[in-house]
Structure formats: structure tokens, C-alpha cells
Amino acid sequence: MIEVFSWPTPNGHKVHILLEECGLPYRATAVDIGAGDQFQPDFLAISPNNKIPAITDPEGPDGEPISLFESGAILVYLAGKTGRFLPRGDRARYEVLQWLMFQMGGVGPMLGQNHHFRQYAPEKIAYAIERYTNEARRLYGVIDRRLAHSRWLGGDEYSIADIATWPWLRNWKNQGIELSDYPALERWFHAIEQRPAVQRGIQVLADRRKPITDERAREILFGSTQYQRR
């Protein structure tokens, strides 16, 4: 059974959703990032960047165990393991992978900064809020233009590119976005939202998450604890 070390965040939801879509047996182990679980030695042994999610699979390549960190790498691995949600043909495969990389390199980091400065920063910095709100709008526009000509991000079939991107857009209201401004994206968003596996995936560990309000959690997530050598 695959063990997923995770927390109910967009990056965690990616893996939860794909596991539900594939029907693979798994166990979700909570890594409470507000309590500092991500800095524990056992977790760092499989996720040296102290970020969720990470997985261990006792039946990895050639039947040998494997552990993986980085959500994009995990999605590619699980898609390869099951033969689902990543095309086999080279051209179609690269079409999906470029949009997966777009999420990993653009959507995730930029919307993460948007969340930080709009919701979590101890002081409201107008320049940062404007910068990352504008960048969110730009990225939504890129996705909308793509989906105006393609049913799914990677082409004709639902894929790990869609699974990776959708959780990051769930907080569109808090990102300063009006979803109706992006009609093709809105159609795609609701189509994914209605998938039973997606609905199950976003409930994984959902009862464990709580608003980040106490100063200790804020320090762990955003303060000097993050930058200690380990």
C-alpha cells in the first residue's frame, strides 16, 4: 500500500486526487505543517526539502520500494505506474508534461505568493499584493486561452496537468479573481469539480486543517524556523 505523507493544501490535493482517480490503495499520514512535522528527521529522510507531499511505495520499479518527494514527480510516477492520465505517445505525452511544468513553475509558485501577501503576511504591502494579483490574472488568462481551444489542458483527455492545476485555482476568490472573467477556464473548473474522485480527494485530511491564526504556527511556516540548517 502506498503511504502518502501530506496535508490538505493544493500540492497535497494533487496527489490525493490522482490516487482516488486511479483507485490505488493508499494510506494518508498527516504532516501538520503548522506544528512543524515537516522538520522531523523521519520526514526529511524522504522529503529533504521539508515540503509535502511525499510518498513511499513498497512496490516500486522492479518490485523494489521507492520514496518520492515533489508533487509533480509523484504525479508522473503514479501515472506511469497505472498507465493512466499521461498519454503513451510521445507527442501527446509532451503536450501534457509542458502544462504540468507550467503549473509547477508558474501557477503554484505565483499563486503561493499571492496567498501569502493577500492573506498571511503580517503587514499589507501594496506593491506585493498588486504584483501577485496581476500575475494571478495573467496566469488565469493563459489557462483560459488554452482552454478556449482545448477541452483539457493537455489536449483531448483529462490528465495529470489538469489534476495538478485545479487545486491551486480553488481559492480564486481569495486570489482577487472573478472566475466568470475566464469563461473557458470556468467551464473546465466546474467539470473537474464535479468528478467524484476529485470530491473524495479534497476531503482527505480535510478535518485536520485549521485556520493559521496562532503566532507559533505562523513562525513555523513563515519565520526563521524555515531557514534553519538541518
Rank of each mutant, 00 (worst) to 15 (best):
57 D>V: 14
55 I>Y: 05
68 L>F: 10
50 N>M: 01
66 I>E: 09
48 P>A: 00
68 L>W: 06
44 L>S: 06
61 P>C: 12
44 L>T: 14
65 P>F: 08
62 D>C: 15
57 D>P: 14
61 P>E: 15
49 N>K: 00
49 N>T: 01
70 E>T: 00
45 A>V: 11
63 G>R: 02
74 I>M: 01
74 I>D: 03
61 P>D: 13
72 G>T: 05
49 N>C: 00
55 I>E: 05
62 D>M: 15
67 S>A: 15
45 A>L: 10
70 E>A: 01
44 L>F: 05
48 P>F: 00
63 G>Y: 01
72 G>E: 07
52 I>A: 05
41 P>M: 05
62 D>T: 14
57 D>S: 14
55 I>M: 07
46 I>N: 08
78 L>R: 07
72 G>A: 15
69 F>T: 08
50 N>D: 03
66 I>Y: 06
41 P>G: 08
53 P>C: 01
52 I>D: 03
60 G>D: 13
68 L>D: 09
49 N>F: 02
71 S>V: 07
60 G>T: 11
47 S>F: 05
63 G>S: 04
56 T>F: 06
56 T>L: 04
41 P>V: 04
54 A>Y: 07
71 S>I: 11
47 S>Q: 08
67 S>M: 03
58 P>W: 01
73 A>F: 02
65 P>C: 10
48 P>V: 03
44 L>P: 05
46 I>V: 12
40 Q>F: 00
55 I>V: 11
46 I>W: 06
66 I>C: 12
48 P>H: 00
78 L>T: 11
68 L>G: 09
69 F>E: 04
69 F>A: 14
73 A>T: 11
46 I>C: 08
65 P>M: 07
71 S>M: 06
49 N>A: 04
64 E>R: 15
41 P>E: 08
59 E>W: 04
59 E>R: 10
60 G>N: 12
45 A>T: 10
47 S>I: 11
52 I>K: 03
73 A>W: 01
68 L>V: 09
66 I>F: 08
64 E>K: 15
46 I>F: 08
56 T>H: 09
45 A>Q: 09
58 P>K: 05
49 N>Y: 01
53 P>S: 02
53 P>D: 00
53 P>A: 01
61 P>K: 09
50 N>K: 02
63 G>P: 02
